[in-house]
Design a binder for these strands. Structure first.
Lengths: 95, 95
DNA sequence: GTAAAATAGTTTATATAATAAACCTATTTA
DNA sequence: TAAATAGGTTTATTATATAAACTATTTTAC
């Protein structure tokens, strides 16, 4: 049993970690909300959301609000588990 | 005041973070000790130690033990400060 | 005594990743 | 109707982590 277990590279990323952190508390968030809260560019956010979705950590739903496109994200059980594991692992580095 | 302050990229790296974590508790450590504890390759460790040294986070002393080269590392005040700041910032992401 | 293996690293190459810049399409607003 | 805004996606660039290859010396085995 090693002292420093590997940190999930999908979560060990500033923007993706911030996104997950936000999604955990709100359980559903729009693209623009995430963009504002994280102060990221839309391009960067789009890419990182894709990665989280492909990993099965979040679900992304595309619809329309009125005539405008609307992207809504929510955390999935697998993502919650991964986040908790990540925090647990990380604590051993910083405590 | 943003919710997610940027994480010091020098510390937001698995191996460098592990090294700093070790150095904080022991205050002085040999290259081979760090290599074993972190289970890293010598090459990777060498590169990451260089970066920490160039940032002024650690001091590296090269000497000989008997006839063998010996590399000794210790944390510097600036490194300690940076580590504490990093942990503080990170907590807002994971708590 | 010398060939092979081990020690203690450094340097170089590669693959991945984060990020920003450029782009796209539709919709408002002036 | 031209310009600006909304809500993104795609592509390009830069940086980074990591491993592979290399160097130099020393010890061990034959």
């Amino acid at each position: 049993m090693s002292e420093f277990k590997p940190l999930d590279p999908l979560l060990h990323s500033q923007l993706r970690l911030a996104v997950m952190s936000l999604l955990i508390s709100v359980e559903e968030a729009e693209f623009t909300f995430l963009k504002e809260k994280t102060e990221s560019t839309a391009g960067n956010l789009s890419v990182q959301l894709d990665k989280l979705e492909k990993a099965g950590y979040i679900g992304i739903e595309k619809s329309f609000r009125g005539k405008r496109p609307l992207t809504t994200c929510r955390i999935l059980p697998e993502g919650l588990k991964a986040f908790e594991d990540y925090v647990e692992t990380l604590r051993k580095y910083i405590e």
